[in-house]
Amino acid sequence: MKRQIIDTISAYETIIIHRHVRPDPDAYGSSFGLKEILKKTYPEKKIYVVGDHEETLTFLTKPDILQDDQFEGALIIVTDTANTERIDDQRYTSGAFLIKIDHHPNDDAYGDLFWVNTQASSVSEMIYELYEEGKGIANWQMCDAAARLLFAGIVGDTGRFMFQSTSQKTFDTAGDLIKYNFDRTELFNGMYEVDRNLLHLQGHIYQHFIMDENGAAYIKLPVETLKDFGVTASETSLLVGSLGNVKGIKAWIMFIEEEDQIRVRLRSKGPVINELAKQYGGGGHALASGASVYSWNEVDEVIDKLIKICK
């Protein structure tokens, strides 16, 4: 499969890379990391990454802005995106050929060609594996910029190497990447430093979350609360792991109200929660998933189901 992807990439002049909406470090790391590898390897090709920019990831890079006609005849590669509904920039359908590279369960097997590895810690780790294959087949080139982005993606999706998805291969890959010239301290500061108002919201979460005797927990963050603390809905993604520090917790949900929906961010220390996310149009990993609901009544339904899962 990797050989087919490499051969396909070599055949196209224009390559446009997509990732999922509301991107995280792995979405940026895998898509932009691949872009930098391909730019270094094929300087004559036109290579872009598209999608709405996430301001909290500005420290990594920013997407390209393309016109519709630039998609004609292009190779489209989508990284870190389980289903077509979550692909950022729906112009992905305007290309000539579509490749999916992902590590989520392959419930939506879209694309003319796809490589899915649910055992990988991150798609950034998969992109490094693809690079290693390409190095032998087509003299692919790594560079400092790509190494920095891939390392950020791996760190982000492994929770700084603390999640169960972290493997020996993950550490080996990270060890190879840090041989390149980039400032890890600066990178970690960009990933984990937060403004004071976000820390105040974190304190609110610790004071007001609810947990039952079975270790099921949740916190509701309505629009009014976010406004009180001066925090955007997207910024709350930096806090979703906070409750993992609570002794006795098994699984938890953070409900974040936006203008048109309520984001459901699920995390777990053991119970499988991605099937619950799928019931509400979402999905993800067994221990880290997301979905959306559209009323506080639905929120209460999700909480009841989480409690049953944890019993």
Rank of each mutant, 00 (worst) to 15 (best):
D7F: 12
I9M: 10
I9E: 11
S10D: 15
E13N: 15
E13H: 14
I15C: 06
V21R: 14
P23V: 05
D24N: 12
G29F: 10
S31R: 07
F32Y: 12
G33A: 02
K35H: 02
K35W: 00
K35Y: 00
E36W: 03
L38Y: 08
K39Y: 00
K39Q: 10
E44P: 01
G51T: 08
E54T: 04
E55M: 11
T56W: 11
T61Q: 12
T61C: 15
L66H: 04
L66W: 07
F71T: 03
F71P: 00
E72C: 04
I77G: 01
V78R: 00
D80S: 01
R86K: 08
R86C: 06
S94Y: 12
K100I: 06
G111Y: 04
L113C: 14
V116R: 01
N117E: 14
T118S: 14
S122F: 10
S124C: 13
M126R: 05
I127H: 01
Y131A: 08
I137G: 00
A138W: 06
N139G: 07
Q141S: 11
M142S: 05
D144N: 15
A146K: 01
A147W: 12
R148I: 00
A152S: 14
G153N: 02
G153I: 05
Q164A: 10
Q164C: 00
S165F: 01
S167V: 03
D176L: 12
D176S: 14
Y180L: 14
L187D: 09
F188M: 13
G190P: 10
M191Q: 07
M191G: 07
Y192E: 10
Y192S: 01
E193C: 09
E193T: 15
L199R: 10
H200T: 02
L201M: 09
F209L: 10
E213C: 07
L221P: 02
L221E: 05
P222L: 13
V223C: 14
L226V: 07
A233P: 06
S237H: 11
S237V: 11
L238H: 08
G241M: 03
N245Q: 13
G248E: 12
Q261Y: 11
Q261S: 15
S268D: 02
K269D: 02
G270H: 09
P271A: 13
V272N: 10
I273C: 07
E275A: 13
Q279G: 11
G281N: 09
G281R: 11
L287T: 05
A288D: 07
G290N: 03
S295D: 14
S295Y: 07
W296I: 06
E298A: 11
V299W: 09
K305V: 03
K308G: 00
I309H: 09
